[in-house]
Design a protein around this nucleic acid. Structure first.
Length: 196
DNA sequence: TCAGCGATTAACT
DNA sequence: GTTAATCGCTGAA
């Protein structure tokens, strides 16, 4: 079933990043429903996190959606060619978010592999935030869209990842964030074969 | 107004 | 391991 608002407005963004593992990310783009199991996330801890776009309370046209109440999407365009998808969390005016970095294609793989090459799978996993958005058809038109609506949402299908199968470590590609780049805000599932 | 660069990927050597 | 592709955001002028 679809996750409700109370899942997103909790205050501990790191806990939410952990909880999102094993959930199902679903999009409906061009009338096509596609989905995948979330297996890798990163937490971005608002104004206190140098790696976060809203560090220090920065608020611009791009980042303002992070200040919304939890339960909306934040789609960010990077490197001139990739969209990255985030889940905005916490209360209004608190710019926390979780980056979705990896999924296992689940529903309507036919359409997923029409959007992205099946060769980009690694052990059955789409590993990388740019691949996730491409596979599910996420683009800038989904920025700021509610995750409680019918364009993009997250479901709990009862998949429970044992805490022992979750690897926690430093985030990727945020070396510029100094000591905050070392924070254990990255979560990924190991032994995927054993529970899928 | 504009130069510099980024929460990346794929295709090279 | 290295690098091209590619463009909107950011911050300084």
């Amino acid at each position: 079933m679809k996750l409700k608002k109370d899942f997103y407005i909790r205050e501990n963004v790191v806990q939410i990043a952990n909880d999102l593992l094993g959930k199902i990310l679903v999009t409906k783009v061009d009338g096509k429903i596609t989905s995948g199991i979330i297996v890798e996330t990163e937490a971005y801890n608002g104004i206190y996190d140098k790696a976060c776009h809203a560090y220090g309370g920065r608020k611009t046209d791009r980042t303002k959606v992070m200040y919304e109440e939890g339960g909306v999407s934040y789609v960010y365009f990077c490197y001139g060619m990739h969209y990255l998808f985030n889940v905005v969390t916490n209360k209004k005016e608190v710019p926390d978010a979780v980056l979705i970095r990896g999924i296992i294609p689940l529903k309507n793989k036919k359409w997923i592999f029409q959007r992205i090459s099946e060769r980009s799978l690694k052990n059955g996993v789409l590993n990388g935030p740019g691949k996730v958005t491409k596979a599910l058809g996420i683009n800038k038109s989904l920025n700021g869209v509610s995750l409680l609506g019918n364009q993009i949402w997250i479901e709990d299908d009862g998949i429970l990842i044992p805490q022992n199968d979750i690897i926690v470590g430093p985030r990727i590609g945020v070396d510029y964030a100094g000591e905050d780049a070392l924070l254990p805000y990255r979560f990924l599932v190991k032994n995927i074969d054993s529970w899928i």
